[in-house]
Amino acid sequence: MTPRPPPSLDDASAGYFLDAAAELIDAMFDHAIRERPRRLRGIHFPAALEWMRVSDVVGLAQKRHGDGASEKAFRNRWPDRNTFVKAAIIHTMLYRDAPEANPSLHVAKLPASAGAASVADSVIGLCDGLLEALQARPRSYLLHHIGPLLDQYPDLRTAIIEDIVRTREPWFEGYARFLEALQLKLRPGWTIERVGLALQAMLDGFLFRSRIESEEMNEARSAEASLFAETVIAFVLGVLDLDDSRESTHAILDQAARAE
């Protein structure tokens, strides 16, 4: 008989368990409780990820993949539950179970915005499309959920920050090309990195606010765009040096306040 290959953290069996964990994480953040698959309705989801039990992960993975997802196979890859949960968080946040659904792919739409007939409409489409893509994936709220606890897990925090930095770089490059194509410059004190970080913070905030005040956010839409897209446009207009004055945003505000 051909000997079995040694257990690995990136083999098919490992993927079974990690994919099952991703499904359970999505279920925890899914506000449509009645629409959860029947096999998940009996699972109680308390705070953070304390609710995730190895038995639930193994059970779901076995239903998906059969004997290749036994508890022994699980134990051969992760010595304890906490080690697995950390791996599952990264697996889920990186969309390794569904790479085609990763909202970060929207960065590919950024270069076309500069050449659109209406840059405003293109920016609105990009912003609203990105926000809607995040809202459609329950795991988008995972970082909001575990963020306050990350200082307790330095290695997990490091891994998540590294992922955030890595996925942010293509956006920075896209913003730079966008400004270059339109021959636009930023006001003094503003860099591509600061703009990108501000936009990310806005997106995080709007995503969270849209979940807890969905009706109010819908009512705040204009006929053309969401409040998020309108806010992005207002912010961009503020940091762009459209009059080539080389004045900072602070100076422009003071000048406007003193104007008669």
Rank of each mutant, 00 (worst) to 15 (best):
S140N: 06
L149V: 04
C127S: 00
D128S: 11
Y153N: 03
H144D: 02
R166E: 15
I146H: 10
L156G: 02
L131H: 14
G125A: 12
I164H: 15
T167S: 12
Y153H: 07
A120Q: 05
V119F: 10
Y153M: 01
Q152S: 11
L156R: 00
A136S: 08
A133K: 14
V123P: 03
G125V: 05
P148M: 09
I161H: 10
Q135I: 00
L142R: 02
L149E: 06
S122M: 13
L150G: 08
P148V: 07
G125N: 05
L149C: 08
C127F: 08
S122K: 14
T158N: 11
P154V: 02
E132M: 10
D121G: 14
G129A: 03
G125H: 12
L150N: 03
Y153V: 05
E132G: 14
Y153D: 03
L126E: 14
R137P: 09
P138W: 08
A159G: 02
G125F: 11
V123D: 11
D121V: 12
Q152T: 00
S122W: 11
G147Y: 06
D128I: 13
S118H: 08
L143A: 13
H145I: 02
I146M: 09
L150S: 01
H145Y: 04
I146G: 04
A159R: 11
R137T: 06
L149F: 07
S118Y: 06
Q152E: 03
D151L: 09
E162V: 11
Q135N: 00
L150D: 05
L130M: 11
L149D: 13
D155V: 03
L150Y: 05
R139K: 03
D151C: 05
T167Y: 13
P148T: 01
E132A: 11
L131D: 12
L143P: 08
I124V: 10
S122C: 14
R137D: 14
Q152L: 05
H144N: 00
D155F: 04
S140G: 07
I146T: 01
T167C: 15
V119Q: 10
S140C: 05
S122A: 14
L134Y: 15
D128Q: 10
S140P: 07
G129W: 03
T158Y: 04
S122Q: 10
P138E: 07
P148Q: 10
D128A: 13
E162S: 10
D128H: 06
V123S: 14
P138L: 14
P138K: 10
P138N: 03
L150F: 11
S140W: 05
S122T: 09
L134A: 15
L156M: 08
I164E: 15
D163A: 00
R139F: 01
L149G: 08
G147N: 09
G129F: 04
L130N: 01
V123Q: 04
I146N: 12
P148H: 00
R137Q: 06
A159I: 02
L130C: 12
S118W: 04
A136T: 02
R157M: 05
T158K: 10
D155Q: 10
G129Q: 02
R137S: 09
Q152C: 03
I164G: 09
